[in-house]
């Protein structure tokens, strides 16, 4: 077996053997709670509310799980000094990071797909449909998770876990509100060099708003998971964007990590 895959498999095992089941249980409970609550709501709104909340849950859960496991697992790897055993074996630090990312991403796929299946089950019980839209949301959320994982790896490669957590969460928040931030800039400031620079900077951040589209305007069109959701084509383009972005982030992470003293 390839050394990179060995790291990926081990990372996957660690995450799966640790906490995934508890998280899923929590998610299922929340979903059931939502479903139970919804039976009280008038029938017309039920479909929209149910699918909206399921999509939001998948989206936010996967984002927080990605940040949580990303920060936590690398932190543990460095803090517990298990890296001493791994990085003195014939594997480059770059491949080690890539293996970590792959393993964690595999976990995220398992999680988002499980959440998708639970959500679809709820939707079948309520008879509200929306399966295709839900599966597109699952794919979007998995790629958002990938971006967040790579960002947590980047920060972990040179700073402390606490700062990694804070920076990753900061990137998440800003990334989700890039269009709003652009709008604010354009409302409050005259067009000048400073504003242009700020615009460019915002564009360089991870465009995480692309992954949570339900309930937002997209190219002048109102998008809703219950009615008029994004196409597979959109999902494909967004996925390619995340892969390219992640490649850049990982190149940077690897460059930093190769220089790091493992004390």
């Amino acid at each position: 077996m390839n050394a990179l895959l060995a790291v990926a498999l081990n990372t996957y095992r660690e995450a799966i053997r640790n906490r995934v089941l508890y998280v899923l249980a929590l998610f299922a409970t929340l979903l059931l709670f939502a479903g139970g609550f919804l039976t009280q709501v008038s029938f017309n709104h039920e479909k929209r509310v149910y699918l909206d909340s399921a999509a939001a849950l998948i989206d936010l859960f996967s984002a927080f799980l990605a940040m949580g496991t990303g920060v936590n697992l690398i932190y543990k790897e460095l803090q517990n000094k298990t890296v001493y055993l791994i990085l003195t074996k014939p594997i480059s630090r770059t491949r080690f990071l890539a293996g970590k990312l792959l393993g964690l991403w595999a976990v995220m796929w398992v999680l988002t797909i499980s959440m998708g299946i639970l959500a679809a089950g709820g939707s079948a019980i309520l008879g509200v449909g929306g399966l295709a839209a839900l599966s597109r949301q699952v794919v979007l959320s998995s790629f958002q998770a990938l971006v967040l994982l790579s960002i947590s790896l980047l920060f972990s490669s040179f700073t402390t876990p606490v700062l990694t957590g804070a920076f990753t969460f900061g990137m998440f928040l800003i990334g989700r509100f890039v269009p709003d931030l652009h709008a604010i800039l354009h409302r409050k400031f005259q067009p000048d060099l400073a504003r242009d620079t700020a615009d460019r900077l915002l564009d360089m951040l991870p465009q995480l708003h692309l992954f949570a589209v339900s309930g937002h305007e997209l190219q002048g069109r109102y998008v809703s998971i219950a009615a008029d959701f994004v196409s597979w084509r959109y999902v494909g383009i967004t996925s390619v964007y995340s892969l390219l972005y992640v490649l850049l982030v990982m190149a940077l992470a690897s460059w930093m990590f190769r220089r790091r003293d493992l004390v």
């Binding site: 790291v7 298990t82 074996k89």
Partner: peptide, 19 residues
């Protein structure tokens, strides 16, 4: 030395060999 507590001795050595 610190180890991955969730792995068995055999799994850990298999991973080391894979590396």
């Amino acid at each position: 030395p610190y180890f991955y507590g969730y792995l068995t001795g055999r799994e850990f050595l298999e991973m080391a060999a894979a590396l």
